[in-house]
Simulated assay, not measured.
Amino acid sequence: MTTMNISLPDTLKMFVDEQVNERGYGTSSEYVRELIRRDQHRQQLRTLLMEGATSGPTAPVDGDYFESLRTRVRNAAK
C-alpha cells in the first residue's frame, strides 16, 4: 500500500474526525478510502448511464420481453 499525505484546514480535519468517530471507521484513512471508492462507483455509474443515453433505440420493454428473459434463464439453468 502506498502512503499519501494531504493537508486539510482545521474545519475539514474536525469534520473527518467526527465522521470517523460517528460512523465507526477505525482511522481517517479508512474514511478517505471509502469516499474515493464511492466516487469511483459514481463515475462508473455515470459512464454506464451516458452510454445508455447515447445508445440507439431498443425493443420495447413489456410483458413479452420479461417473459422471454424468464424463459432464457430457465433454459440456461437446465
Rank of each mutant, 00 (worst) to 15 (best):
G56I: 06
D64K: 12
N75S: 09
G24L: 07
G26F: 03
G52C: 04
T71P: 02
P9Y: 15
G52W: 04
G52K: 03
D62H: 12
S7F: 12
I6V: 11
Q40T: 00
V61Y: 04
P57R: 04
F15L: 15
N75K: 09
E34P: 00
V16F: 15
F66M: 09
Y65K: 01
S55I: 01
P60C: 07
N5H: 11
R74H: 06
Y65L: 05
R23F: 10
S55V: 01
V32W: 12
R46I: 00
P57D: 09
A53T: 05
F66C: 06
R23N: 10
M50A: 08
S55Q: 10
D62R: 14
S28F: 02
P57T: 11
A59H: 06
F15M: 15
A53R: 10
M1D: 13
K13D: 13
H41N: 02
M1C: 12
M14V: 14
L35V: 07
Y31L: 08
D17K: 10
G26E: 09
A53Q: 09
G56E: 07
T47D: 07
Q44I: 02
E67N: 09
G56V: 07
M50F: 05
D17G: 06
L48E: 13
R74V: 03
S55T: 08
L48I: 04
R38A: 03
G56R: 11
R38H: 03
Q43M: 07
L8T: 10
P9R: 14
N75M: 09
E30M: 03
S29H: 10
T58I: 08
L49Q: 13
V61H: 04
Q40P: 00
Y31M: 07
Y31N: 01
G24I: 08
S68M: 06
F15S: 14
T54C: 05
S28W: 04
T11G: 08
N21T: 12
M50K: 10
